[in-house]
Design a protein around this nucleic acid. Structure first.
Length: 304
DNA sequence: AACTAAAGCAACCGCAGCCTG
DNA sequence: GCAGGCTGCGGTTGCTTTAGT
Protein backbone atom coordinates (compact mmCIF):
# COMPACT_ATOMS: atom_id res chain seq x y z
CA UNK A 1 0.00 0.00 0.00
CA UNK A 2 1.94 2.99 1.25
CA UNK A 3 1.29 6.62 0.76
CA UNK A 4 -0.38 7.54 -2.50
CA UNK A 5 1.76 9.69 -4.75
CA UNK A 6 0.93 13.34 -4.64
CA UNK A 7 0.19 13.38 -8.34
CA UNK A 8 -2.64 10.91 -7.98
CA UNK A 9 -4.88 13.84 -7.33
CA UNK A 10 -7.50 13.89 -10.04
CA UNK A 11 -7.78 16.81 -12.39
CA UNK A 12 -4.30 18.05 -11.68
CA UNK A 13 -2.70 19.47 -14.76
CA UNK A 14 0.44 17.92 -16.16
CA UNK A 15 2.82 18.80 -18.92
CA UNK A 16 4.25 22.07 -20.06
CA UNK A 17 3.73 25.16 -18.00
CA UNK A 18 1.86 28.13 -19.42
CA UNK A 19 3.12 31.67 -18.92
CA UNK A 20 0.19 32.54 -16.67
CA UNK A 21 0.97 29.55 -14.46
CA UNK A 22 4.57 30.64 -14.24
CA UNK A 23 3.43 34.08 -13.24
CA UNK A 24 1.11 32.79 -10.56
CA UNK A 25 3.83 30.62 -9.11
CA UNK A 26 6.46 33.34 -9.23
CA UNK A 27 4.15 35.92 -7.74
CA UNK A 28 3.17 33.62 -4.93
CA UNK A 29 6.70 32.64 -4.02
CA UNK A 30 7.92 36.20 -4.20
CA UNK A 31 5.18 37.20 -1.80
CA UNK A 32 5.10 34.26 0.57
CA UNK A 33 8.25 32.29 0.04
CA UNK A 34 8.35 28.63 -0.80
CA UNK A 35 6.84 27.19 2.34
CA UNK A 36 4.89 23.99 1.95
CA UNK A 37 4.99 22.73 -1.60
CA UNK A 38 2.01 20.50 -1.12
CA UNK A 39 -0.25 23.35 -0.13
CA UNK A 40 1.33 25.89 -2.40
CA UNK A 41 -0.61 25.08 -5.58
CA UNK A 42 -3.95 25.65 -3.90
CA UNK A 43 -2.82 28.82 -2.22
CA UNK A 44 -1.29 30.11 -5.43
CA UNK A 45 -4.36 29.22 -7.45
CA UNK A 46 -2.59 26.61 -9.53
CA UNK A 47 -4.05 23.37 -10.75
CA UNK A 48 -0.77 21.52 -10.32
CA UNK A 49 0.68 19.16 -7.80
CA UNK A 50 3.21 20.55 -5.37
CA UNK A 51 5.95 18.48 -6.81
CA UNK A 52 5.45 19.95 -10.22
CA UNK A 53 5.50 23.44 -8.76
CA UNK A 54 8.71 22.80 -6.90
CA UNK A 55 10.34 21.42 -10.00
CA UNK A 56 9.21 24.31 -12.11
CA UNK A 57 10.50 26.79 -9.59
CA UNK A 58 13.83 25.15 -8.88
CA UNK A 59 14.63 24.28 -12.45
CA UNK A 60 13.23 27.20 -14.33
CA UNK A 61 11.70 30.13 -12.50
CA UNK A 62 14.19 30.72 -9.71
CA UNK A 63 15.69 34.17 -10.23
CA UNK A 64 19.28 33.07 -9.73
CA UNK A 65 19.20 30.56 -12.53
CA UNK A 66 21.78 31.08 -15.17
CA UNK A 67 20.64 29.95 -18.58
CA UNK A 68 22.51 29.46 -21.77
CA UNK A 69 25.30 27.28 -22.97
CA UNK A 70 27.70 25.69 -20.57
CA UNK A 71 31.15 27.22 -20.72
CA UNK A 72 34.28 25.17 -21.19
CA UNK A 73 35.14 25.78 -17.56
CA UNK A 74 31.81 24.50 -16.39
CA UNK A 75 32.11 21.53 -18.69
CA UNK A 76 35.47 20.59 -17.26
CA UNK A 77 34.34 21.06 -13.72
CA UNK A 78 31.33 18.85 -14.26
CA UNK A 79 33.52 16.09 -15.57
CA UNK A 80 35.95 16.45 -12.71
CA UNK A 81 33.23 16.39 -10.15
CA UNK A 82 31.45 13.53 -11.84
CA UNK A 83 34.62 11.48 -11.75
CA UNK A 84 34.63 11.92 -8.00
CA UNK A 85 30.99 12.12 -7.09
CA UNK A 86 29.32 10.05 -9.74
CA UNK A 87 25.72 10.84 -10.58
CA UNK A 88 25.20 13.04 -7.57
CA UNK A 89 23.84 15.82 -9.69
CA UNK A 90 22.57 17.96 -6.89
CA UNK A 91 25.97 17.96 -5.23
CA UNK A 92 27.62 18.77 -8.52
CA UNK A 93 25.11 21.54 -9.06
CA UNK A 94 26.13 23.24 -5.83
CA UNK A 95 29.50 23.84 -7.42
CA UNK A 96 28.04 25.47 -10.48
CA UNK A 97 26.24 28.59 -9.36
CA UNK A 98 23.07 29.20 -11.27
CA UNK A 99 22.93 25.76 -12.77
CA UNK A 100 20.38 23.19 -11.72
CA UNK A 101 20.93 19.53 -11.15
CA UNK A 102 18.46 18.76 -13.90
CA UNK A 103 20.28 20.97 -16.36
CA UNK A 104 23.62 19.42 -15.51
CA UNK A 105 22.18 15.95 -15.72
CA UNK A 106 20.71 16.68 -19.12
CA UNK A 107 23.95 18.21 -20.30
CA UNK A 108 25.83 15.18 -19.12
CA UNK A 109 23.50 12.69 -20.74
CA UNK A 110 23.20 14.49 -24.04
CA UNK A 111 26.67 15.94 -24.53
CA UNK A 112 29.42 15.07 -22.10
CA UNK A 113 28.76 11.36 -21.97
CA UNK A 114 29.11 11.14 -25.72
CA UNK A 115 32.22 13.27 -25.73
CA UNK A 116 33.92 11.03 -23.21
CA UNK A 117 32.94 7.96 -25.16
CA UNK A 118 34.35 9.46 -28.31
CA UNK A 119 37.55 10.19 -26.46
CA UNK A 120 37.85 6.61 -25.34
CA UNK A 121 36.91 7.29 -21.76
CA UNK A 122 34.29 5.32 -19.97
CA UNK A 123 31.81 7.92 -18.71
CA UNK A 124 30.92 5.79 -15.73
CA UNK A 125 34.34 4.92 -14.42
CA UNK A 126 36.26 7.77 -16.07
CA UNK A 127 38.84 5.22 -16.98
CA UNK A 128 40.10 4.57 -20.47
CA UNK A 129 37.94 2.10 -22.25
CA UNK A 130 39.51 -1.28 -22.84
CA UNK A 131 37.97 -1.86 -26.24
CA UNK A 132 40.35 0.47 -28.03
CA UNK A 133 42.67 -0.14 -30.93
CA UNK A 134 46.38 -0.27 -30.32
CA UNK A 135 47.19 3.35 -31.12
CA UNK A 136 44.57 4.57 -28.74
CA UNK A 137 45.80 2.11 -26.18
CA UNK A 138 49.28 3.61 -26.45
CA UNK A 139 47.88 6.99 -25.63
CA UNK A 140 45.98 5.53 -22.76
CA UNK A 141 49.18 3.98 -21.45
CA UNK A 142 50.88 7.34 -21.65
CA UNK A 143 48.13 8.85 -19.64
CA UNK A 144 48.43 6.14 -17.02
CA UNK A 145 52.11 6.87 -16.71
CA UNK A 146 51.33 10.48 -16.10
CA UNK A 147 48.85 9.52 -13.45
CA UNK A 148 51.49 7.48 -11.76
CA UNK A 149 53.80 10.47 -11.58
CA UNK A 150 51.05 12.57 -10.17
CA UNK A 151 50.34 10.03 -7.49
CA UNK A 152 54.00 9.90 -6.57
CA UNK A 153 54.12 13.62 -6.18
CA UNK A 154 50.95 13.73 -4.19
CA UNK A 155 52.32 11.11 -1.84
CA UNK A 156 55.46 13.17 -1.51
CA UNK A 157 53.39 16.18 -0.68
CA UNK A 158 51.48 14.34 1.98
CA UNK A 159 54.59 12.99 3.58
CA UNK A 160 57.11 15.79 3.23
CA UNK A 161 55.45 19.10 3.87
CA UNK A 162 57.90 21.11 5.89
CA UNK A 163 56.74 23.27 8.76
CA UNK A 164 58.85 26.15 7.55
CA UNK A 165 57.55 26.08 4.09
CA UNK A 166 54.37 27.66 3.11
CA UNK A 167 54.56 25.32 0.24
CA UNK A 168 52.78 25.80 -2.93
CA UNK A 169 51.27 22.57 -4.02
CA UNK A 170 52.26 23.31 -7.54
CA UNK A 171 55.89 23.36 -6.54
CA UNK A 172 55.59 20.21 -4.56
CA UNK A 173 53.79 18.41 -7.23
CA UNK A 174 56.32 19.55 -9.72
CA UNK A 175 54.56 17.89 -12.52
CA UNK A 176 52.91 14.82 -13.72
CA UNK A 177 54.74 15.01 -16.96
CA UNK A 178 58.38 14.07 -17.40
CA UNK A 179 60.22 16.55 -19.60
CA UNK A 180 61.90 13.62 -21.19
CA UNK A 181 62.50 10.05 -20.38
CA UNK A 182 66.05 10.66 -19.23
CA UNK A 183 64.85 12.82 -16.41
CA UNK A 184 62.33 10.46 -15.17
CA UNK A 185 61.87 11.09 -11.50
CA UNK A 186 62.34 14.59 -10.35
CA UNK A 187 62.27 16.98 -13.21
CA UNK A 188 58.89 17.52 -14.61
CA UNK A 189 57.27 19.98 -16.86
CA UNK A 190 54.11 21.11 -15.25
CA UNK A 191 51.11 20.98 -17.46
CA UNK A 192 49.00 24.10 -17.45
CA UNK A 193 46.04 22.03 -16.44
CA UNK A 194 47.74 20.71 -13.38
CA UNK A 195 49.19 23.99 -12.35
CA UNK A 196 45.88 25.69 -12.62
CA UNK A 197 44.19 22.87 -10.84
CA UNK A 198 46.69 23.14 -8.10
CA UNK A 199 47.28 26.85 -7.85
CA UNK A 200 44.89 28.38 -5.47
CA UNK A 201 42.01 26.11 -5.90
CA UNK A 202 43.07 22.75 -4.67
CA UNK A 203 43.60 21.74 -1.12
CA UNK A 204 44.64 18.34 -0.05
CA UNK A 205 42.61 16.70 2.61
CA UNK A 206 44.32 15.33 5.64
CA UNK A 207 44.45 11.65 5.16
CA UNK A 208 45.66 10.63 8.56
CA UNK A 209 45.54 12.02 12.05
CA UNK A 210 48.53 14.11 12.98
CA UNK A 211 51.24 11.90 14.33
CA UNK A 212 50.25 8.90 12.34
CA UNK A 213 51.37 10.10 9.00
CA UNK A 214 54.31 7.86 8.44
CA UNK A 215 53.69 6.99 4.86
CA UNK A 216 56.78 5.91 3.10
CA UNK A 217 57.01 6.43 -0.55
CA UNK A 218 59.49 6.98 -3.29
CA UNK A 219 62.63 6.51 -1.32
CA UNK A 220 61.16 6.38 2.12
CA UNK A 221 60.37 9.90 3.15
CA UNK A 222 58.70 9.83 6.48
CA UNK A 223 57.31 12.93 8.01
CA UNK A 224 54.54 14.28 10.09
CA UNK A 225 52.98 17.25 8.42
CA UNK A 226 52.44 19.95 10.93
CA UNK A 227 50.77 22.51 8.78
CA UNK A 228 47.20 22.23 7.78
CA UNK A 229 47.37 25.15 5.38
CA UNK A 230 48.16 23.03 2.42
CA UNK A 231 46.06 20.13 3.45
CA UNK A 232 42.70 20.80 2.03
CA UNK A 233 43.29 22.24 -1.38
CA UNK A 234 41.65 19.55 -3.36
CA UNK A 235 38.92 19.27 -0.85
CA UNK A 236 37.99 22.86 -1.45
CA UNK A 237 37.22 22.23 -5.04
CA UNK A 238 35.03 19.32 -4.22
CA UNK A 239 33.46 20.59 -1.08
CA UNK A 240 32.07 23.93 -2.17
CA UNK A 241 34.70 26.16 -0.68
CA UNK A 242 35.18 27.69 -4.08
CA UNK A 243 31.80 26.92 -5.31
CA UNK A 244 30.19 30.09 -4.13
CA UNK A 245 26.86 28.42 -4.09
CA UNK A 246 24.98 31.65 -3.80
CA UNK A 247 27.61 34.19 -4.49
CA UNK A 248 27.85 33.42 -8.13
CA UNK A 249 31.59 33.16 -7.98
CA UNK A 250 33.24 30.57 -10.08
CA UNK A 251 36.51 28.83 -9.44
CA UNK A 252 38.29 30.54 -12.24
CA UNK A 253 41.53 28.79 -11.60
CA UNK A 254 40.12 25.39 -12.25
CA UNK A 255 41.14 24.82 -15.76
CA UNK A 256 41.56 21.43 -17.23
CA UNK A 257 42.16 20.08 -20.68
CA UNK A 258 39.41 20.87 -23.01
CA UNK A 259 37.24 18.15 -24.32
CA UNK A 260 36.54 20.14 -27.36
CA UNK A 261 38.79 19.00 -30.12
CA UNK A 262 39.26 22.39 -31.63
CA UNK A 263 42.81 23.50 -32.26
CA UNK A 264 42.47 26.59 -30.12
CA UNK A 265 41.79 24.41 -27.16
CA UNK A 266 45.03 22.57 -27.42
CA UNK A 267 47.99 24.67 -26.54
CA UNK A 268 51.45 23.35 -27.17
CA UNK A 269 51.96 23.06 -23.45
CA UNK A 270 49.27 20.53 -23.29
CA UNK A 271 51.08 18.07 -25.47
CA UNK A 272 52.29 14.98 -23.78
CA UNK A 273 55.49 13.59 -25.07
CA UNK A 274 56.32 10.03 -24.30
CA UNK A 275 59.49 10.28 -26.30
CA UNK A 276 60.40 13.41 -24.46
CA UNK A 277 62.93 15.31 -26.52
CA UNK A 278 60.96 15.24 -29.72
CA UNK A 279 57.95 17.41 -30.04
CA UNK A 280 55.18 15.10 -30.83
CA UNK A 281 52.07 16.21 -32.62
CA UNK A 282 49.21 17.47 -30.58
CA UNK A 283 47.57 14.47 -29.01
CA UNK A 284 43.88 13.95 -28.85
CA UNK A 285 42.48 15.94 -26.00
CA UNK A 286 41.47 12.98 -23.94
CA UNK A 287 45.08 12.26 -23.20
CA UNK A 288 45.47 15.44 -21.35
CA UNK A 289 42.20 15.02 -19.64
CA UNK A 290 43.02 11.54 -18.58
CA UNK A 291 46.17 12.83 -17.00
CA UNK A 292 43.92 14.59 -14.58
CA UNK A 293 41.75 11.64 -13.83
CA UNK A 294 41.51 11.85 -10.10
CA UNK A 295 39.62 8.68 -9.64
CA UNK A 296 42.54 6.44 -8.95
CA UNK A 297 43.70 8.59 -6.10
CA UNK A 298 40.91 7.54 -3.87
CA UNK A 299 39.18 10.89 -3.67
CA UNK A 300 35.87 9.16 -3.51
CA UNK A 301 36.90 7.48 -0.31
CA UNK A 302 38.38 10.68 1.03
CA UNK A 303 35.23 12.61 0.41
CA UNK A 304 32.98 9.92 1.68
C1' DA B 1 9.82 22.29 -49.29
C1' DA B 2 8.97 18.02 -47.02
C1' DC B 3 10.35 14.35 -44.42
C1' DT B 4 13.22 11.89 -41.01
C1' DA B 5 16.56 11.31 -37.46
C1' DA B 6 19.07 13.12 -33.82
C1' DA B 7 19.73 16.22 -30.14
C1' DG B 8 18.18 19.06 -26.45
C1' DC B 9 15.35 20.02 -22.82
C1' DA B 10 11.43 20.21 -19.52
C1' DA B 11 8.80 17.58 -16.83
C1' DC B 12 7.22 13.29 -14.60
C1' DC B 13 7.77 9.29 -11.62
C1' DG B 14 9.23 6.55 -7.90
C1' DC B 15 12.17 6.05 -4.16
C1' DA B 16 14.83 7.24 -0.04
C1' DG B 17 15.70 9.92 3.77
C1' DC B 18 14.50 13.39 7.00
C1' DC B 19 11.18 15.51 10.05
C1' DT B 20 7.43 15.73 13.17
C1' DG B 21 3.74 14.39 16.11
C1' DG C 1 10.13 3.84 18.53
C1' DC C 2 6.93 4.33 14.90
C1' DA C 3 4.06 5.92 11.20
C1' DG C 4 2.79 9.36 8.12
C1' DG C 5 4.00 13.46 5.60
C1' DC C 6 7.18 16.18 3.00
C1' DT C 7 11.12 17.15 0.30
C1' DG C 8 14.89 16.23 -2.62
C1' DC C 9 17.18 13.30 -5.76
C1' DG C 10 18.15 10.53 -9.79
C1' DG C 11 16.32 7.96 -13.66
C1' DT C 12 13.39 8.20 -17.39
C1' DT C 13 10.06 9.80 -20.72
C1' DG C 14 8.24 12.42 -24.23
C1' DC C 15 7.79 16.76 -26.59
C1' DT C 16 10.14 20.35 -29.28
C1' DT C 17 13.76 21.99 -32.01
C1' DT C 18 17.50 21.45 -35.15
C1' DA C 19 20.20 19.25 -38.68
C1' DG C 20 20.58 16.33 -42.51
C1' DT C 21 18.82 14.29 -46.78
Amino acid sequence: MGRPPCCDEHGVKKGSWMPDEDKKLTDYIEKHGQGNWRRLPKLAGLNRCGKSCRLRWTNYLRPDIRRGKFTDEEEKLIIQLHSVLGNRWSTIATCLPGRTDNEIKNFWNTTLRKKLLQMGIDPVTHQPRTDLDSSLQLQVDAARLIELHLVQNLVRLLTCSSPASNLDLSRLLGSAVPKNHHQANDTFAFTPQLSSLVNGSLRLPSLLPVGQQTLSANGGHTATPSSTDDDSRLESMMMNKHCGTNSGTFPASVTTPSLVSSPENMSKNETISLEGSTNTPTPPPFEAWDALNLDDFGWKEIIE
